[in-house]
Design a protein around this nucleic acid. Structure first.
Length: 402
DNA sequence: TGAAAGTCAATATC
DNA sequence: GATATTGACTTTCA
């Protein structure tokens, strides 16, 4: 693929091979609850390098490529895995960057995102499952930590070495031996000028986009044009924003489902990270029932969004909760949340997966986090409404999509 | 073909 | 310095 990663992430490959040399099979882990469906632990020294494009080969599994391993993997408890990984990394003072680049073949930001907001296994594509399989293999390796520590030491050593030599050369070389920094460092200054500056949306622009989202999660091209011109943004920026926002809202809801379903999840160590601090706008979803028309709500910044509206819409929403929608198209596991089928049998895994019980009862003692959750759910209602409308526009019920 | 999924990487925040 | 956020982009999927 010509994607930037092709040119920007060759580096992670090199250290990996040494870090993953002795990754064990999917079976035999004390954390594994359903290893039976896993493959036999046929130990085969390395050889996992399946495709040149695959960033991080996982060696030693009957010659299976990581893709094959993923395909054969039983359902994993993604939340339990990320929780454990976070724990191990924290306990051993290992960074996300090193872990990501060495073990997962992902950048720091991706790792952070993945660890903070793991999607349930059945919602993941094969590609999306790959990092979780890698994480699990890593957890199962009794020497995983030492290897990463060694890696860290090596990196530090190399860094110091380069630093010293750069000092003597009279120019600075920043970054580590792996990863984007290295790539960047290898670019000529001229090349760096070619970079497109990152667009940073201001709070008002975000507000306006969120309001527009409340009204129309799937805006028409015309609406997008209008938004773009009103906000003085490129249409592609607006389009991207809607894509990203929908996707991220959806992920937030997965997290909430997990939490609500079993009381485990991010909440147990302080709440969903994405909701933490109720950052800008996370809680500003508002009732979008006036979704007809193309009004963007740009003129009226306050009138439409009232907490009261939120409460009302959500109160009636519990049975249509997004969780229900999300669980309506499960994979083979058909379990919402990390319930019974996961490989991990961590005790906190919820036994019940009735997601639409996850709306907190209305009451005065609601904390800001609850409010955010409620608001998010209301926001998602718009999505449901949109789909309903879409479905309604199709005469043939077989064309309905839910 | 459009939407979703997945990821990068710049930047913000802690 | 490490981690979190997020705009942009590519790939996958229905």
């Amino acid at each position: 693929t010509p994607k930037t990663s092709a040119s920007c992430s060759p580096a992670p490959e090199s250290p990996l091979s040494s870090a993953e040399e002795s990754v064990n099979g999917l079976v035999g882990d004390p954390l594994t609850s359903q290893s039976s469906s896993g493959k036999a632990p046929s130990e085969e020294p390395s050889g996992g390098e399946s495709q040149p494009g695959t960033p991080l080969p996982v060696p030693g599994h009957s010659g299976l490529s990581i893709q094959e391993m993923v395909a054969m993997s039983p359902e994993l408890d993604t939340y339990a895995i990320t929780k454990k990984v976070k724990e191990v990394l924290t306990d051993n003072n290992l960074g996300q960057r090193l872990f990501g680049e060495t073990i997962l073949g992902l950048t720091q930001g991706s790792v952070s995102d993945l660890l903070a907001r793991p999607k349930p296994w059945h919602k993941l594509s094969l590609k999306g499952r790959e990092p979780f399989v890698r994480m699990q293999l890593w957890l199962q390796d009794p020497h995983s930590v030492e290897k990463l520590m060694d890696m860290k030491r090596l990196e530090k050593k190399a860094y110091m070495k380069r630093r010293l030599s750069s000092l003597s050369d009279g120019h600075s070389v920043e970054g580590s031996i792996v990863g984007p920094d290295y790539i960047q460092g290898s670019q000529s200054p001229g090349q760096q000028h070619l970079k497109k500056p990152r667009v940073v949306l201001g709070p008002e622009e975000k507000e306006a986009l969120k309001r527009a989202y409340q009204q129309k999660p799937y805006p028409s091209p015309k609406t997008i044009e209008e938004l773009a011109s009103q906000l003085n943004l490129k249409t592609s920026t607006v389009i991207n924003w809607f894509h990203n926002y929908r996707s991220r809202i959806r992920r937030e809801l997965f997290i909430e489902e997990i939490q609500a379903a079993g009381g485990v999840g991010p909440g147990s160590d302080g709440g969903s990270p994405s909701l933490r601090g109720s950052k800008s706008g996370e809680g500003d979803s508002c009732d979008g029932t006036e979704s007809e028309g193309t009004g963007l709500g740009l003129e009226d910044h306050r009138g439409v969004c009232k907490d009261q509206d939120m409460e009302d819409s959500e109160a009636g929403a519990s049975n249509n909760s997004p969780a229900q929608t999300d669980c309506s198209t499960p994979g083979p596991g058909s379990s919402c949340g990390p319930g019974g089928l996961g490989l991990f049998s961590l005790s906190e895994a919820p036994s019940s997966s009735t997601p639409n019980t996850n709306i907190p009862a209305p009451g005065p003692a609601r904390n800001p986090r609850d409010n955010n959750l409620r608001k998010k759910k209301a926001a998602n209602l718009n999505n449901i409404i949109h789909r309903l409308e879409k479905a309604a526009s199709k005469e043939d019920p077989s064309e309905w999509e839910f």
